[in-house]
Design a protein around this nucleic acid. Structure first.
Length: 318
DNA sequence: AAAACGGCCAACCGCCAGGTA
DNA sequence: CTACCTGGCGGTTGGCCGTTT
């Protein structure tokens, strides 16, 4: 049983507001203000609008109220939004609070349609300059688990024995987006030179009874070191991040394609090696704000092996 | 010329926290 | 204390419109 609707949906107008409706709402608000609790719900009836109270509130706050600015974001505003997003994420109302005359909705739209791309492009250029490396062209970072010194084996020859050594952050549950599928890593931390991607990939309650169960995993720890055991999980399943073979990943991808076709984020057309390549090093193709965080500065990129290394811990390849 | 595509943005949806009866 | 209600919020949708094919 769902919760009761806030208004009678059948008798409520939806869609764009007419000038007449705007005039009525504006006149009332300028005369009375929002006042006390309960005003929005009862307001449409008072002024003869066939609108939901929440719709009136939104229209007033985002469009009709005085001193609202639309469009024409300045460079200063761009920088402020980017910096705030990096530090607090998608807290649009708080960000809007720092930008007089801007609404959270406007800022959200502006971020999603323009600023995100702008910032990502800038970050990518900076990182390419820093590593003197062009991101999309790195070869796969593979390792023969039985013989760790043998990087770059031909995956066609021994695919089954090759394990994905790279980040795998595409396969995760995005805590920000609350979505399953191929998304940026949910949380990354570094300890003793080892990266940990905390990925809640699939859980039983969301997957449904006919789906495979996959679990919370701590990526690199699973085979790079025994000192950091994988995180525990209350459901058993398959670790779909680092440590999986390509064949295992391919199987998972097919499952995901079937169960979550909307959420593959464009990667469904890539081969598994391409997908892994896509997310093997920063910057991943992001969907949440953590991907905009600074790369730790003790991080370098080994162009010969295309593996990211922490400078003080060369043995801990990623 | 028209169909397809993609960007933009207003508006909607549903969840949640906090206030109130 | 608790159930209910409202406002606030972030994510998402859908329609409009300009551009490309």
């Amino acid at each position: 049983m769902g919760r009761a609707p806030c208004c009678d949906k059948a008798n409520v107008k939806k869609g764009p507001w007419s000038p007449d409706e705007d005039t009525k709402l504006k006149a009332y608000m300028e005369k009375n203000g929002t006042g006390t609790r309960g005003n929005w719900i009862s307001l449409p009836q008072k002024i003869g609008l066939k609108r939901c109270g929440k719709s009136c509130r939104l229209r007033w706050l985002n469009y009709l109220r005085p001193n609202i600015k639309h469009g024409g974001f300045t460079e200063e505003e761009d920088n402020l939004i980017c910096n705030l997003y990096k530090s607090i994420g998608s807290r649009w109302s708080i960000i809007a609070g720092k930008l007089p005359g801007r609404t959270d909705n406007d800022i959200k739209n502006y971020w999603n349609t323009r600023l995100k791309k702008k910032l990502l492009g800038k970050q990518r250029r900076e990182q390419e300059a820093r590593f003197n490396y062009t991101w999309p062209h790195q070869p796969f970072a593979l390792q023969d688990v039985a013989n760790p010194s043998q990087d770059h084996l031909n995956e066609q020859e021994s695919l089954a024995s090759l394990k994905v050594q790279t980040a795998g952050e595409r396969f995760s549950y995005d805590l920000q987006q609350k979505k399953y599928g191929l998304f940026a890593t949910s949380k990354r931390s570094i300890s003793n030179g080892i990266f940990y991607d905390t990925d809640v990939s699939f859980t039983q309650d969301k997957m449904g009874e006919n789906s495979v169960n996959m679990l919370t995993s701590s990526t690199y720890s699973s085979f790079l070191t025994s000192s950091c055991p994988p995180m525990t999980s209350d459901c058993c399943g398959v670790d779909i991040t680092a440590g999986n073979t390509f064949q295992e990943l391919e199987k998972i991808r097919v499952e995901m394609d079937y169960n979550f076709p909307q959420q593959l984020d464009g990667l469904e057309n890539l081969s598994i090696p391409e997908m892994v390549n896509c997310c093997s090093v920063y910057p991943p193709m992001i969907s949440n704000y953590e991907a905009f965080q600074e790369i730790p500065h003790d991080f370098s990129f080994d162009k010969s092996s295309s593996i990211a290394l922490r400078q003080d811990h060369g043995a801990s390849k990623l």
